[in-house]
């Protein structure tokens, strides 16, 4: 919840925002090799010759605001005398790091403002996942605040609207879960260990909060690695894990906030469960646990088996 006006869908449309899709590529012997991403909210790459840790990742995109004047003044989100900027905030949950990307090139094209981004994640700097959130922020505060602009945010560096959010899955989907392998025939083929968390909206989705144990003593146990062996078993495991997590989140009284993205901290257990729900093609039916299980299974199967996008 914000106590100042932020970007709305209506304003986004009125101001004429146009965002190109990201262009992803990597460098091989000074050749820029394109990567084709599959998926909209969660993007995956199928290129076997590319490895993020070894090859890095270059991202490019342009953003045009056709009528930027609508963003300013008492009906907008910044004072007439202020300047708005656009940046991409990246988060790499696996390595617990984040940063800010500013446009390399900004110019006016007739009445439009154009922002061009071109950024290279060097090899060895990111792994596992990458979230790219394009944000509008107050770049320069207004010196003069006009009548009617008192409620507008006027502090430099403050974010006033999300333009879009893209998640790159740089491993396989199930690898987003903290996973440990064990080898012990006296133990089950897999189990989920949940630590004693009670605030899923804040507690981080990491190994300290939860861990899936895969017992390689069983032949059918899915193996960790580049390709998925025994995918059907893996689908059942991941489905059950999601059901258990939603149940625990519900026990904590946070299910409604979790599925509606209310007050969720980035990287928290609830936020990850929200992303999962949001990326599902088939709506998850939360009305009963059996229905939840069935609808989650359909989505997990689709993700692991690689449905058409």
């Amino acid at each position: 919840m914000f106590f100042y006006p932020t970007l709305t869908d209506e304003l986004l449309e009125t101001a004429g925002f146009s965002l190109t899709s990201y262009i992803y590529s990597y460098n091989v012997n000074d050749l820029d090799c394109r990567l084709i991403g599959k998926g909209k909210n969660v993007v995956k790459f199928d290129d076997d010759t590319w490895r993020i840790e070894r090859d890095g990742l270059r991202i490019r995109r342009s953003i045009v605001i056709e009528y930027p004047e609508y963003l300013y003044g008492k009906s907008g989100i910044a004072c007439e005398d202020a300047e708005l900027g656009i940046c991409i905030i990246w988060t790499n949950k696996t390595l617990k790091q984040m940063g800010t990307i500013l446009p390399g090139n900004t110019y006016r094209n007739e009445a439009s403002s154009v922002y061009e981004f071109d950024y290279l994640f060097e090899p060895g700097t990111i792994k596992g996942d990458l979230c790219l959130e394009t944000q509008l922020y107050i770049k320069k505060a207004a010196e003069k605040i006009l009548l009617g602009e008192e409620s507008l945010m006027n502090d430099e560096g403050v974010k006033v609207g999300v333009l879009d959010e893209v998640h790159l899955d740089l491993g396989s989907m199930y690898m987003e879960f903290p996973i440990a392998e064990i080898n012990d025939k006296k133990l089950p083929m897999w189990w989920l260990e949940l630590s004693d968390w009670s605030e899923p909206q804040k507690d981080l989705f990491d190994e300290d909060s939860l861990c899936i144990y895969l017992n390689t003593a069983y032949e059918l146990c899915p193996k960790m690695g580049e390709t998925v062996k025994y995918a059907d078993v893996l689908i059942d495991i991941i489905t059950t894990v999601y059901v258990m997590l939603y149940r625990k989140v519900s026990d904590c009284g946070c299910l409604a906030n979790t599925i509606n993205d209310v007050d969720l901290e980035e990287g928290s257990i609830s936020k990850i469960l929200y992303y999962f729900k949001d990326s599902c093609k088939t709506d998850i039916d939360f009305s009963t646990e059996e229905r939840m299980h069935k609808t989650i299974w359909m989505n997990v199967a689709d993700m692991i088996n690689g449905g058409d996008d």
Binding site: C87, I89, T100, Y137, K139, D155, E156, G157, K159
Partner: peptide, 8 residues
């Protein structure tokens, strides 16, 4: 709400 790198 605020991105430290973007502040003056």
């Amino acid at each position: 709400t605020t991105e430290p790198a973007l502040v003056k």
